[in-house]
């Protein structure tokens, strides 16, 4: 048990928590944008996974991590554009299409990976790290929190930016109107379809970047089905955050820690099956949902297509 408490262990646990939490943060923030606008984006798992694949392939062949993140974002947005076309433009059932996208991308990326790399799993080099001046010199916390890939800091900046966008800009107001009273937004002369399309594309881009981070920084390689439910955890984070980006960050940190425990406990030499620890994040979701069930709030028009003049 002493191994649990020493400094190196704590550092690696927190470092792992950040690495595991950032994809969840990006997916959760992305999902929050969609949900604000009234779109229940069940396909986010597929967007993450496709972003992980495109991001990995781009980084693998170009050797550039930045290019990898951009490609991951574009990959995610590409999948999202399918949701835009089918669900936003034509109003098809968002749940059916969401399931289809997740299943289809799982199959497609596994196929693509097989035809590209056969049964090998090539690794990327260590991802570049920015150690923040001064902050990274703090014992334990410095190494754990302030020497990461730039995407980590960008994700936090994005969270702060979203607080501002939701609270103080027309974009934020439009998004909220599209989810709460789409007819009112339409009457004000703003296109509901365009607003929601923008929201879903943003979700796709962010979760794609999250997926790319997972593959390129977190794992250093791509494995089929590697997102393993992270997208769905993102949906839960967005549900519980009630439209507040800060809560998504807190939630992502919580889940990041429970995910990091998986590896940390093994390193610490605790002899229990990994499956026990793998249950932690999902058990945590259920626990949080049971405790805070009353408080999760979703917009009234969530999941419903907008057809002008109906209802």
């Amino acid at each position: 048990m002493e191994a649990l408490l020493n400094q190196a262990f704590l550092t690696s646990l927190l470092f792992g928590a950040v690495t595991a939490g950032v994809p969840l943060l990006l997916a959760g923030l992305g999902e929050q944008i969609s949900e604000k606008a009234g779109v229940l984006n069940i396909g986010i798992e597929g967007m993450m996974l496709f972003g992980a694949y495109t991001g990995f392939v781009a980084a693998y062949y170009s050797g550039s991590f930045s290019l990898g993140f951009v490609a991951g974002g574009i990959g995610g947005a590409l999948v999202a554009s399918l949701v835009v076309l089918l669900c936003i433009r034509y109003g098809l059932n968002q749940i059916v299409i969401g399931i289809a996208i997740t299943l289809g991308i799982e199959g497609l990326t596994a196929l693509l990976h097989y035809f590209q790399f056969s049964r090998t799993y090539p690794r990327l080099d260590q991802a570049p790290v920015w150690a923040l001046p001064f902050l990274s010199d703090i014992p334990v916390l410095g190494r754990a929190l302030f020497s990461h890939n730039p995407i980590v800091y960008l994700a936090v900046v994005l969270m702060i930016a979203l607080v501002w966008v939701f609270r103080a800009t027309y974009v934020g107001l439009n998004l909220e109107a599209a989810g709460n009273k789409p007819a009112a937004l339409d009457a004000a002369g703003v296109s509901v379809v365009k607003t929601r399309a923008f929201a879903v594309l943003a979700t796709g881009f962010l979760s794609g970047v999250g997926g790319a981070y997972m593959a390129n920084v977190g794992a250093g390689l791509f494995v089929p089905f590697m997102t393993g439910g992270a997208g769905f955890i993102g949906i839960v984070l967005a549900m519980l955050a009630r439209g507040k980006p800060v809560w998504v960050l807190l939630g992502a940190a919580l889940f990041g820690i429970s995910l990091a425990m998986t590896t940390a406990l093994q390193v610490g030499g605790i002899n229990i099956p990994t499956d026990v620890v793998q249950m932690l994040p999902f058990a945590m979701v259920m626990l949080v949902l049971v405790i805070f069930a009353r408080h999760s709030v979703l917009p009234p028009a969530l999941g419903l297509p907008y057809v002008r003049g109906e209802r």
Binding site: I97, A100, L103, G104, E106, G107, L108, A110, Y114
Partner: peptide
């Protein structure tokens, strides 16, 4: 995994 793709296409 190709069956997964078929299932997804079928749903869409």
């Amino acid at each position: 995994h190709f069956v997964l793709v078929l299932v997804a296409l079928l749903l869409i």
